[in-house]
């Protein structure tokens, strides 16, 4: 008995018993709770099942090797299903169950069709298992990959969002820090700031830590490193936005920032302007001496 004849046997079974297999499969899926979470509508699930089954019966006529080009369209559909489930927040086992629960209906169909020939049924079961396993593993792989893509994209977005260097005035830069400062982020922040200092020939950089939820000894050390590096390049740093709570914690921890610090970004900006020999005055006050 060759795999080829098995393949044609499966093709016949799938075309003859297609509707039964489909309903048995979707019943199994429903009983395992595929719709329970409400993330997937029944009609959607039905369409997915029908498409997969149709493509499987087309592909299976050409052989049982899940890696062969015959299975290309089926793999694409499975990849789409898998990706959409990753986005919808299904667990890996829920996604795998979608494919693996097709096994039982197929077994039943085969044993019903070849009831008189146990050895054929045994071989067929083995082949089905191999095929469905391969397809299931492929689905999981795609699922994993799309999850990873999501994570990488989010990480990149966070990194981009969290380190903007803003030019406040000629020679004055501001670095509003948001979120926890760990070593890796400090590195990025430091590099960004130093590059901007060079690019804009800035004399003063204001590091605003209003958005930093907690400051521990390590964070303070990172901050001081950034300040020292900026100083080595010839720019002064002002730290602003230390919240009362954080100031208390830092003093209790024995952390001392030997840097000019101001309570708010506005105060720091005023000081920075003063250092570069500028000042902000009300329009009227300026007009009076002229008039």
């Amino acid at each position: 008995m060759t795999t080829r004849s098995h393949a044609s046997l499966f093709a016949t079974i799938l075309s003859e018993h297609g509707p039964q297999i489909l309903s048995a499969w979707s019943d199994r899926l429903k009983s395992t709770g595929a719709l329970a979470s409400g993330r997937l509508r029944e009609a959607e699930l039905q369409t997915q099942c029908r498409t997969v089954l149709e493509l499987l019966s087309t592909a299976i006529a050409g052989g049982l090797d899940a890696a062969s080009p015959n299975y290309g369209p089926l793999r694409d559909v499975l990849a789409d299903v898998s990706r959409s489930r990753a986005v919808q927040g299904f667990t890996p086992s829920e996604t795998a169950t979608f494919v693996f629960s097709l096994k039982q209906p197929l077994f039943e169909a085969v044993s019903a069709a070849e009831a008189g020939d146990p050895s054929t049924v045994a071989r067929a079961v083995q082949d089905i298992t191999q095929l469905i396993d391969a397809l299931g593993l492929y689905t999981i792989e795609v699922f994993q990959k799309s999850r990873e893509e999501t994570i990488i994209r989010q990480q990149r977005e966070i990194a981009e969002l969290s380190t903007p260097v803003v030019k406040l005035w000629d020679g004055i830069l501001a670095l509003p820090l948001i979120g926890t400062l760990d070593s890796q982020r400090t590195q990025v922040v430091m590099e960004n700031l130093l590059e901007s200092i060079v690019a804009q020939t800035a004399e003063i950089a204001i590091i605003d830590i209003t958005g930093v939820p907690t400051v521990d000894t390590l964070t303070a050390q990172h901050l001081l490193k950034t300040v020292s590096a900026a100083r080595l390049m010839g720019a002064d740093c002002i730290i602003s936005g230390i919240r009362p709570q954080i100031a208390q914690t830092m003093v209790h921890l024995g952390v001392e920032l030997n840097v000019v610090s101001k309570a708010t970004l506005a105060d720091a900006f005023a000081l920075a302007l003063k250092r570069v020999g500028r000042t902000v005055v009300a329009v009227k006050a300026r007009e009076l001496p002229a008039g």
Binding site: Q187, M190, E191, L194, E195, I197, V198, K225, S228, A229, A230, L232, M233, G234
Partner: peptide, 12 residues
Amino acid sequence: VGMRPAVAITLV
């Protein structure tokens, strides 16, 4: 004068 960012980071 003119210390490069990478050099500054290294020294720190």
